[in-house]
């Protein structure tokens, strides 16, 4: 299988504080990779390095075939990113949000128009084309934000707690979109606090105090920890954390 992400002793220090402690893992093409960990475990820092936002202190990593320390510009062209914090630009209309991100990724005008029509149709949002993003319900916004993050057909999409604050039904619908993207060959790298979502992932890693403590399929993890669900697995591991959660 083709590896789209691989790291080798990837480390990030802030002064004496080791935020990410030589983590090593690989993600295969078309996989849904769950990147879990309590607050302050180092998930965000690790993800920032993979996205080319932050330089590793030591160690190395490859994302979409490019080196994270030296080829950040190439990485940025090949990834998508969505976070809970950012849904969309509230004061832009739905289609303007899509056009903006198409423009940012250098897509052609025609391409942007076709893709916009296609996405609105897929989501059933045709009527909302000219609606300001702030008027959409949160669940809709998140769906649209996800569509925006894969608008330019990236190889990998990084989702940083994408479903914060919505009900289980809406989350379920959101994950249907993720599966659809995976079918198109997009690799999904996702962090989440919801353990039911961890069950949807092909493989899951759990970070504790800057290190990756376990990495396996949800099924194997549950068996190894003799747990009924992923939440139980997570609780057992998180209890070992010595760092103060912020």
């Amino acid at each position: 299988m083709e590896k789209v992400i691989s790291t080798n002793k990837l480390t990030k220090k802030f002064g004496n504080f080791i935020a990410v402690d030589s983590i090593e893992f690989e993600v295969e093409k078309g996989e849904i990779f769950g990147f879990l960990g309590a607050n302050g475990a180092g998930k965000t820092t690790a993800m920032r390095m993979l996205c080319g936002l932050s330089r590793p202190t030591s160690g190395s990593g490859m994302v979409a075939g490019f080196d994270i320390a030296s080829q950040q510009e190439d990485i940025k062209k090949n990834i998508g990113y969505m976070s809970q914090k950012f849904a969309l630009y509230d004061d832009l209309k739905v289609w303007e949000n899509l056009r903006l991100f198409g423009g940012i990724y250098g897509m052609k005008k025609k391409e942007i128009e076709d893709k916009t029509a296609q996405i609105l149709q897929e989501l059933g949002f045709e009527k909302e084309r000219n609606t300001l993003a702030k008027l959409l319900p949160l669940g809709w916004k998140q769906k649209l934000a996800f569509s925006v993050s894969i608008f330019h057909e990236p190889k990998i999409v990084f989702l940083d707690e994408p479903t914060g604050g919505v009900d289980p039904v809406t989350r379920r619908r959101f994950w249907e979109l993720i599966y659809r993207a995976v079918q198109r060959g997009i690799t999904v790298f996702v962090t989440t606090h919801y353990m039911d979502e961890a069950e949807y992932c092909n493989r899951v890693s759990i970070m504790v105090d800057g290190k990756i403590e376990v990495l396996d399929t949800p099924k194997n993890l549950k068996a190894a920890f003799n747990a009924a669900n992923m939440d139980d697995v997570f609780q057992q591991l998180a209890r070992k954390a010595t760092r103060i959660n912020n």
């Binding site: 080319g52 990113y81 976070s83 914090k85 950012f86 630009y89 940012i104 250098g106």
Partner: peptide, 9 residues
């Protein structure tokens, strides 16, 4: 949103 912009090329 600054994050998103910085992740873009």
């Amino acid at each position: 949103t600054m994050e998103i912009l910085l992740v873009s090329p």
